[in-house]
Design a protein around this nucleic acid. Structure first.
Lengths: 124, 124
DNA sequence: TCAAGTGTACTACGAATACTAGTACACTTG
DNA sequence: CAAGTGTACTAGTATTCGTAGTACACTTGA
């Protein structure tokens, strides 16, 4: 179901995240169905369970799956709707980036501020 | 006029950038006045000229100064106005980050896309 | 109850990246 | 043309990132 390319420059955990995103958004993985366990998938791909864990953590933070301690990870129910709204945000981001460049805001300055705003929001 | 803190975790060139930003925005350095040369400032701070150069490059990209080959770097005239507009962009960014987090978009995903949009715009 | 399954936290090591320095080159001015 | 300026290239060190190793905590069913 999942395959990784060790030649690829992209980190393994990132490749896994993207493939699961596609599977979930396209409905191949149905809501509330169980994800492969970190160990079984790690065994299947011949990599470390912690790498799967890192991918799952990312998927969780992005709302694609939810974890249940001692039981496993499961596909989130509202992943589809959420994705629509996310796409809207991405369009706005693209537009904002365009204006930023015109104003001479560097890519680094832009992303650094975004990170800071993310951190500030976490505290609340 | 400029001081650096080697204990600080922030890179030296970044410290320099921030201090000059403040000086320029507050009008301490007047438009079209000459910046310290990369060598003289490097000598004064006992660091490498290339580090100053990196700071100046960043300031140039953000529109705070402009370079003249063989003559030096000078304070940009419209730094004040440009900054007002930049602050507007930053407010929008903060708002967009807030909505992104609610939608479960990770900080990494957000910044990675921003960088991609930056790169895409460069080609044109 | 407990064994086998699950996720999670901590540390560690190698690779990749970032920061700074060294050196050399090109342009401007008096 | 000499002394000042910015700029490009390379290189070494420090920091960060990705992955693996190990150990711990929770859930379930026999």
């Amino acid at each position: 179901m999942i395959g990784i390319d060790l030649q690829n420059r992209k980190p393994i955990y990132e490749q896994i995240v993207e493939q699961f995103q596609t599977l979930i958004v396209n409905g191949v993985l149905e809501p509330d169905s169980q994800m492969p366990s970190v160990r079984s998938l790690a065994m299947e791909l011949s990599i470390n369970p912690n790498t799967i864990q890192k991918a799952y953590s990312a998927l969780e933070q992005e709302g694609y799956i939810y974890p249940v301690k001692g039981r496993g990870n499961f596909v989130s129910g509202n992943a589809g709707l959420r994705l629509k709204k996310q796409e809207g945000v991405y369009r706005e981001l693209r537009e904002l980036v365009g204006r930023s460049r015109e104003l001479g805001i560097s890519c680094e300055e832009f992303t650094e501020r975004a990170e800071r705003y993310y951190r500030e929001g976490q505290k609340e």
